[in-house]
Design a binder for these strands. Structure first.
Length: 418
DNA sequence: CGTCCACAGGAAATGTAGGTCT
DNA sequence: AGACCTACATTTCCTGTGGACG
């Protein structure tokens, strides 16, 4: 008997629970899709088309709706000889500036030609823009440019200024760029420079978070395909929907939860997926997220975390940033590592707060002691120490902290909670 | 009601490491 | 080789601010 056997007790076909799955119809987004369609209609009519911006948190259907609309648009456009349409999709997930987006666009446009990809540094911005206009012109016709997760470029929004004007400024002659921007961040709109704002936000479509009912309606058809009949207990889908709704309202989160619950059930050779598996899945996913968050910190981040863990092990929390900084410097000295400025440590602390690793309390004692923040771990000390101990550099220090914590009986409660 | 503490956090400068072009 | 480009972490400099105190 092999170590790996095919085991299909629970899943019939896990694909509908995959992140990349594209359902053939989109549920609970009728109004948004209708708006979207109206915004794209001029392309078929060969009329000038506004740029479109989609806003909404992750997992609210922006990307999936766009893929859906574009694939319909492409098939329908093919029916008309005088409509020349191409689409271009760039995810800005790892692109932090207009420059990088422009490079990515050029490389995407060059992909099917034999031409070389261009490098991500070295050229001047104008040069990259010129290359981009050149490629666009060669393509010609209406070119839909989807910039997914565009908020990643932050304040550097030159490309959003340049592209929409490329035609009116005669940078391109044969191409009509239409930009579809997708943003997870509401505030992105506010932070755009004014000259960009009015051109770009011509048509805006808002994707609000899903509520529990909507999530159920999204999950049900997928669940039906993914699992064998009768495997899912009645409460499972509603519970996944409820967890995701009260947390983020994200369909992605709800789907992951459902899949994880199924995987746990399958791993345990269970006959059916019960509510308990959903709860386990929720814990498991949360735990993974925190572990990953901690592991991906830089050495400096680890040192800051280590300093906080030290104070936690002495039960000296919450601790104000000044004292934490002193401890951090001592730890760096001991590890023979460079230490960074207090300002930079504040940034690391703020990052870790965003990740949900630590909690911040604002204190204010007026003119006697001023304003300051106090910090404490928001994850079990044991979990932090595990990560640090698996990081060469911190192995020894983490060991010392662990024994201190044991002396003070500060680890037991953690283990049961984790 | 204004003052003023001690830091939070914004903005810009700096340094180092990548690259292209002529 | 030297001029000139961006990226990214960090430093430097600074303005903003909530509430206890007077």
């Amino acid at each position: 008997m092999g170590m790996f056997e095919r085991d299909q007790q629970v899943f019939a076909d896990a694909e509908p629970l995959d992140d990349s799955y594209e359902p053939e119809d989109i549920r609970e987004r009728d109004d948004e899709l209708e708006k979207y369609q109206r915004a794209l209609q001029p392309i078929i009519d060969n009329r000038p088309t506004s740029n479109i911006f989609l806003y909404g948190k992750t997992g609210t259907g922006k990307t999936v709706a766009t893929k859906f609309m574009l694939s319909h648009l492409e098939t329908d456009a093919a029916e008309y000889d005088d409509v020349d349409l191409s689409t271009l999709w760039v995810s800005c997930e790892n692109l932090s500036s207009s420059y990088q987006v422009a490079v990515a666009l050029v490389n995407e446009l060059r992909r099917d030609q034999g031409k070389d990809r261009i490098s991500t540094t070295g050229y001047s911005q104008q040069r990259v823009f010129n290359l981009l206009y050149e490629e666009l012109d060669r393509l010609g016709g209406t070119v839909i440019i989807v910039l997914d997760e565009i908020d990643n470029i932050g304040h550097s929004d030159d490309i959003l200024y340049g592209l929409p004007r490329a035609r009116s400024n005669n940078y391109v002659e044969d191409a009509r760029p239409v930009i579809i921007g997708i943003s997870n961040d509401f505030q992105f709109r506010e932070n755009l420079s004014p000259k960009v704002k009015d051109t770009l936000a011509e048509k805006e479509i808002l994707f609000p978070p899903y509520d529990a009912n909507q999530l159920r309606s999204i999950l049900n058809p997928r669940a039906e395909k993914a699992f064998h009949d009768g495997v899912l207990e009645g409460d499972v889908v509603p519970l996944c929907a409820a967890f995701a709704a009260q947390d983020t309202g994200s369909a992605r989160q709800a789907i992951r939860l459902l899949r994880e619950a199924g995987e746990i059930a399958q791993a345990e050779d269970a006959e059916c997926v019960t509510e308990d598996y959903v709860r386990n899945a929720q814990d498991e996913l949360e735990k993974n997220q925190l572990y990953e968050g901690m592991q991906e910190l830089t050495t400096q981040g680890h040192a800051v975390l280590c300093a906080l863990a030290y104070h936690q092990s002495l039960d000296e929390v919450p601790i104000r940033s000044r004292d934490l900084y002193h401890r951090y410097v001592k730890i760096c000295d001991r590890l023979d590592a460079d230490s960074v400025s207090e300002r930079r440590v504040r940034d690391h602390l703020s990052d870790m707060n965003m990740l949900g690793l630590i909690s911040v309390y604002e204190r204010n004692e007026g003119l006697s002691a001023g304003r300051y923040h106090e910090y404490e771990l928001d994850v079990p000390l044991k979990a932090v120490l595990d990560v640090l101990q698996s990081t060469n550099r911190f192995e020894e220090v983490a060991g010392i902290i662990q024994s201190t914590a044991e002396d003070n009986n500060l680890l037991q409660a953690d283990l049961s909670a984790y």
